[in-house]
Simulated scan of single mutants.
Amino acid sequence: MSIIIKFFVAPNRDAAAAVVEGGPEGIFDSLTYGNFDAEEALIEWESIFTGQSFAQLADADVPEVVADPEDGEGPLVFLVSAALQDALASADDLRLAEVSQRWVQERAEDRDVFDPEISAGILKGLAELASRIDDRKDRLYCWTA
């Protein structure tokens, strides 16, 4: 479980990886959340949006690790897949609510309790951040510590 999670927009992998030690705040447009497994959430969200199974996405190494200087023992940077970035950017409020509800239900099946309002807020914030990406080279990343 990640204590601090920051989703951010960066122009490329090198720029995203450069913030692994201190995080993206103050350097890139970012959103801060906490107390959930960000890697697992990225896979689950993409699975819900695209219909691919969790196993298929995990086998495809989604999300891609961009920086992991401490071999999983410290801060990490993940690249949000293009499919999830596009799905978030194009989702309307109804679709975001549906994905949020399914995510909360899936987490409940694993005995994780998520507040539906917080879940919806996370996805809405990510959708807004993704929709502000206007340069095709910019991508959405996730930093965790």
Rank of each mutant, 00 (worst) to 15 (best):
M1N: 10
S2A: 10
I4M: 13
I4E: 12
F7G: 00
F8T: 04
V9G: 00
N12Q: 08
N12C: 15
N12P: 01
A15T: 06
A15P: 01
A15L: 08
A17G: 14
A17S: 09
A17L: 06
V20N: 01
E21V: 13
G22N: 13
G22K: 13
G22H: 14
P24G: 07
P24W: 01
E25Y: 10
G26C: 08
I27Y: 08
F28G: 06
F28V: 05
S30P: 06
S30F: 03
Y33L: 14
Y33M: 12
G34R: 10
N35S: 15
F36R: 03
F36P: 00
E39A: 09
E40K: 15
I43E: 01
E44V: 14
W45E: 02
E46K: 02
E46W: 03
S47F: 01
S47A: 13
I48N: 00
F49M: 04
S53G: 13
F54I: 12
A55R: 12
Q56W: 03
Q56Y: 06
Q56R: 09
A58N: 08
V62S: 00
V62F: 00
V62G: 01
V62H: 00
P63M: 10
P63C: 10
A67M: 04
A67G: 06
D68T: 07
E70R: 10
E70N: 11
G72K: 10
G72I: 07
E73A: 13
G74R: 05
G74N: 09
P75D: 07
V77R: 00
V77L: 07
F78L: 08
L79R: 11
L79D: 00
S81W: 01
A82S: 14
L84F: 05
D86W: 05
D86P: 01
D86R: 13
A87S: 10
L88D: 01
A89S: 09
A89R: 05
A89W: 03
S90E: 13
S90K: 15
S90T: 13
S90A: 15
D92G: 12
D93I: 08
D93N: 14
A97H: 06
V99G: 01
Q101M: 15
Q101L: 10
Q101S: 12
R102D: 15
W103M: 10
Q105G: 05
Q105I: 05
Q105W: 03
E106N: 14
E106I: 04
R107A: 12
D110Q: 09
V113K: 12
F114E: 07
D115K: 11
E117V: 15
I118M: 14
L123I: 08
G125L: 04
G125D: 07
L126Y: 03
L129I: 05
A130L: 04
A130N: 02
S131K: 11
I133Y: 02
I133T: 08
K137Y: 12
K137G: 04
L140W: 03
Y141N: 03
W143M: 03
